[in-house]
C-alpha cells in the first residue's frame, strides 16, 4: 500500500471543525469519491473533529491519500491527548452520551466509513483512524 500524499491539520477550537471538513472534502474530491461517499466521509469528520475539541481538549487530524493496488482511499487519524475513553463498549453504543449530545457522534461516524479503529485508554488520549475507499 502506497501513501500518495499526507499532511496534518490542527483541531483546537470549534472553527477548526469547519476547516477539517473543508480539508476532508477537498481530499475526498481529489480521490475521486462519489458525492454520497464524500458526504458520508465529511459528516464523519465533523463528528470526530468535534469530539476531538469537546472531549479531547483539542488535537490534530492526520490525513493520507492511500493507494492499495489501484484502489484509492482517504485515511484520517484524529488524535488528542485528552482524558481518553474509559469504557469503549459504552462509548460505541448508540444513544449513549457523556456530553449532553445525542450520542450519535462516535457510533454514527463508525457507520459512515469503511474502516474504523479506536485506540484509547484512560489518561492516555484518544486516537481514531477512519478510512473510506473510493
Amino acid at each position: 500500500m502506497n501513501v500518495r500524499s499526507s499532511g496534518t491539520q490542527p483541531i483546537r477550537v470549534e472553527q477548526d471543525v469547519v476547516l477539517a471538513r473543508q480539508t476532508a472534502r477537498k481530499l475526498a474530491t481529489e480521490c475521486g469519491m462519489r458525492l454520497v461517499d464524500l458526504t458520508k466521509m465529511v459528516t464523519a469528520v465533523s463528528e470526530l473533529a468535534r469530539n476531538t475539541v469537546v472531549y479531547g481538549g483539542g488535537g490534530d487530524m492526520d490525513w493520507e491519500i492511500i493507494d492499495d493496488f489501484g484502489r484509492i482511499g482517504l485515511r484520517l487519524v484524529f488524535r488528542d491527548e485528552g482524558p481518553g475513553i474509559p469504557d469503549i463498549k459504552l462509548a460505541l453504543t448508540d444513544g449513549w452520551t457523556s456530553g449532553g449530545g445525542l450520542g450519535l457522534g462516535l457510533t454514527g461516524a463508525r457507520r459512515l466509513v469503511d474502516e474504523f479503529e479506536l485506540d484509547t485508554a484512560p489518561g492516555e488520549g484518544t486516537r481514531i483512524t477512519v478510512t473510506r475507499w473510493t
Partner: peptide, 14 residues
C-alpha cells in the same frame, strides 16, 4: 435537503 445529505443522515441514525 440534498439527496446525499438525506442518505447520510439516515445512516448516521438521525
Amino acid at each position: 435537503m440534498q439527496p446525499a445529505v438525506a442518505i447520510t443522515l439516515v445512516e448516521l441514525g438521525l
